[in-house]
Design a protein around this nucleic acid. Structure first.
Lengths: 226, 226
DNA sequence: GACGCAAAATTGTATGACAATCTGAGTCCG
DNA sequence: CGGACTCAGATTGTCATACAATTTTGCGTC
């Protein structure tokens, strides 16, 4: 037995789920795009059985939508829905920050600082991958640290749904700079243990992200069309 | 049964999903119970393919849990998790009530009154089915009326997860009476258009339901065991 | 009763088949 | 020319079967 391999999810369909999810996240499959079973079988070199089961799983995450007899497609989201998602993120992430503010540890703060440093670097260099991973790290601390795993799960689900908006709105001029400022405000509120300020900073950040997303979705964008 | 055409979802696996979900809701499949594929194939008289795909869908709703190589079982929930779920319901349903309070229509209020009348009847007669459906109607007005379908979806997901607790805690002495009182308070807050009171009433109702559930889960209950 | 091991059962995956449904190209009619 | 119709081909939904991998079970031994 080779001692190295096998960090990957062992099951075939788990891998398909993972890879397809990643592909959707970084835009290789655009919202609305049709995902034919045959094409996916070829792309991942697995059987239809596995593809279909993977698609059911992803449908549960709302990343793909299954239309009976017409096949699956990457879930399409219009501005109205996206707006509602942002509202929920504001509510939930605000709550998470409020919970975290009164229980945050020095180590957690350190991790958040480190994530922000990396985000600053990404913002300066325009490294999209680093932007994504550092943001994820920042939020991981908040969500895993807030003490309510259900809350974390809900937010993760919402974030997944509008993930594709992130990369686009982040590439708007100054958006990442603005975003960095807002996240620093969040961190500062936590450092001072101010529950209300923490919630407020989180909500402000989301509303700002919402505005940036609005700009993206309003302009040249057929996502809302059907 | 009756030969009349069914309104059921035509696809086989959609039917399996529906029927299995119902079975879990009303306790025919208890939390933690193993759901062997073969058994489900026999029970629903469908192929393994359909059963497996249906299970993936239900896993997305967190109603069943899939353990690799060990098969699916009805998701088991311990008190800690249930408590977190109630916290999230309080947050989300509180928000829904606050949103609804400033936009509720006379027709919506009428529907809620009607639902409460039916719930009162169920509480008096001990009719579990009516209790469930009237509660569902009451909440449907709130969730569909709040204006944010994403919020509705999140709450529905949470409710599904602890649905099995409802029937049991509702059968505690006086719980349904108490519950009725709380829901009336919710309705009253809406009638007076008082946003803060509406949120408060919703939160109070959930916290009360949480306490009742705690009593159930703490006592003779192996749900948390593994 | 604890332990270990082989048999039996169950899950994961692939393949082939076929009915039901959808899509698109070509055709016919107004 | 535009629109309705038709039919073949492609795609999805479902089933049956097969087999490797893994887990559970039954049983004999200590």
């Amino acid at each position: 037995m080779s001692p190295v391999a096998k960090i990957v999810p062992s099951s075939v369909q788990a891998q398909v789920v993972t890879r397809l999810r990643e592909a959707i996240f970084d835009g290789r499959f655009a919202p609305g795009q049709k995902l034919s079973e045959a094409a996916l079988c070829r792309a991942f070199d697995v059987s239809r059985t596995s593809v279909r089961e993977a698609l059911r799983s992803l449908a549960g995450e709302r990343l793909v939508t299954l239309v009976p007899n017409r096949g699956p497609h990457v879930t399409r989201i219009d501005w109205e829905q996206a707006s509602h998602v942002y509202d929920m993120r504001a509510l939930l992430e605000g709550e998470a920050m409020a919970l975290l503010a009164v229980r945050v540890s020095a180590e957690q703060l350190a991790r958040m600082r480190a994530a922000l440093d990396r985000f600053a670097e990404a913002a300066a260099s325009g490294d999209a991958g680093l932007r994504l991973s550092s943001t994820q790290d920042f939020y991981d601390v908040i969500l895993n640290g807030c003490g309510n795993p259900i809350l974390a799960e809900l937010v993760q689900g919402l974030r997944a749904r509008i993930n594709f908006l992130r990369s686009r709105s982040m590439s708007l001029p100054d958006r990442s700079v603005e975003s960095l400022r807002e996240m620093r405000a969040m961190l500062q509120a936590l450092e001072s243990g101010d529950q209300k300020a923490a919630r407020k900073a989180a909500v402000a950040h989301i509303q700002s992200a919402r505005a940036a997303a609005h700009a993206v979705l309003r302009n040249a964008d057929p996502l809302g069309a059907d």
